[in-house]
Design a protein around this nucleic acid. Structure first.
Lengths: 147, 147
DNA sequence: ATCTTTGCAAACTTTTTGCACCAAT
DNA sequence: ATTGGTGCAAAAAGTTTGCAAAGAT
């Protein structure tokens, strides 16, 4: 495999540096955690993961890093149904379908939304940003259950 | 016009009563506020509106009433992009497009999402619930602006 | 009369801010 | 050396809960 995660980690950090950001312990740990995770992590899940590796990284720092990383276009966040945001690296663009029954997150390629996007632009002069919203509904199993 | 708002108010309250809920000052004021508003009200906007009419209604009560009204299927909520929920009466089904630039909310009929819905069900065995998510993006004016 | 709903105060969760210290470049 | 980043503590914002009093049926 050649340790692709490490390569990706370094690539992301290099990008960060190129854009004027500094590479710190906290940021390294956060990006590493995002690479390892499913890519749908809330701030507190991320905090837990990071602190498992680096116990001295404060949750405050997590928030500030995420903000900085978003500014540097390395990280993006999506809002799932109930208000908490989930974070992921920007090199993993996709849509999120979130099951209201069990919380399952299904990833869907952007192309799936292209027709809708064109239609809404034509009719409502509104350009949706596909990566920044989650679509709620029910997965097969939960749709079968009444509630 | 024949005061359609009052008629609708009474109709909603009657429904509430039929389903075992009690009609109180707070609930009457909340439903009235929802009828008057654009239908995209956050809990604190609603609190402000209600308290303008009924100063003694506490914000706690607003939350509890909204919960009860949702349980009774009179009210539903949608999550806009940044975590806060907006509430509306269930007799106004529609989609929400929310501009990330200026906060503009565009309402779109459900039919607009029918094709996407069918497609996602076929491909991903996932049934989206159109009324329960907001789609973020940019309105015409904000799309023209760089940021 | 009964049982639901409300007001209040306080707890709670999640995120943000001020400030002095520390570290990456 | 400089400027950006971090830890800590404390505040802020939004929502929930326990309990006794008030209100709707």
């Amino acid at each position: 495999l050649g340790r692709p995660t490490d390569e990706r980690l370094e690539r992301v950090l290099e990008m960060l540096r190129q854009r004027g950001g500094r590479v710190t312990t906290a940021r390294r740990a956060i990006v590493a955690a995002l690479l390892q995770s499913s890519g749908h992590v809330t701030a507190d899940e991320l905090t837990a993961t990071v602190q498992a590796a680096q116990p001295d990284v404060h949750s405050t720092t997590i928030y500030r890093c995420l903000e900085a990383l978003e500014e540097l276009d390395v990280v993006d966040h999506v809002h799932l149904g109930h208000g908490r945001a989930v974070y992921h690296l920007t090199d993993q663009p996709h849509q999120h379908l979130v099951c209201e029954g069990c919380g399952l997150v299904v990833e869907v390629p952007d192309e799936q939304f292209a027709a809708l996007r064109a239609d809404l632009r034509d009719r409502y002069a509104f350009t949706i940003r596909p990566n920044h919203f989650a679509v709620l509904g029910r997965c097969e199993r939960c749709a079968a259950t009444s509630r």
